[in-house]
């Protein structure tokens, strides 16, 4: 074995960790969470913008936590982290991507899109839902048989 199993503090994961790193990771995630909470409670950004800002905050928080708290990088001595990452990325894309796809298809069939869009953007008229009309099954909610 390349490192002593008897002394866990010699493991590369432990060697890499520092109090500063943990604190920084915690501080960044806590700060981003506060920002997101403030934006949601204050309603200072329109809904679509809010969604985007929160998504970006969440993305940065994930990266900060992966790097500072979990020490996942692509260096040589952390090869198993890289293996885990190689497995994780396609799984992440599959779960999120397929879920997004099936639910967007479901909403086309079960949700009244005019209500949906007016709820999202009160200022815009219901008819102004770009790109939706051309998608298959768009008018299915008016079909009796579905």
């Amino acid at each position: 074995m390349s490192h002593g199993a008897a002394d866990p503090t010699m493991h590369p994961e432990v060697q890499l960790s520092t109090s500063k790193g943990y604190f920084l990771g915690f501080a960044i995630s806590a700060f981003l969470m506060l920002v997101a909470t403030f934006l949601v409670t204050s309603h200072s950004v329109p809904p679509f913008g809010l969604l985007m800002v929160i998504s970006v905050c969440a993305g940065i928080a994930v990266i900060a936590q992966i790097y500072f708290l979990l020490h996942i990088d692509i260096s040589e001595h952390n090869i198993w982290n890289t293996v885990a990452l190689v497995l994780f990325i396609p799984l992440f894309l599959i779960t999120i991507g397929l879920t997004w796809w099936m639910f967007s298809q479901l909403y086309l069939r079960t949700m009244d899109m005019s209500v949906m869009s007016s709820a999202m953007q009160p200022a815009v008229h219901a008819s102004a839902t770009p790109g939706m009309a051309a998608m298959p099954g768009m008018n299915a909610h008016t079909d009796s048989g579905n």
Binding site: W101, Q105, L108, R109, T110, N146
Partner: peptide, 14 residues
């Protein structure tokens, strides 16, 4: 996993 809820109504493509 969706085959556990085909009848959800996600449509023919899904």
């Amino acid at each position: 996993w969706l085959h556990h809820f085909f009848t959800m109504g996600a449509g023919p493509y899904v």
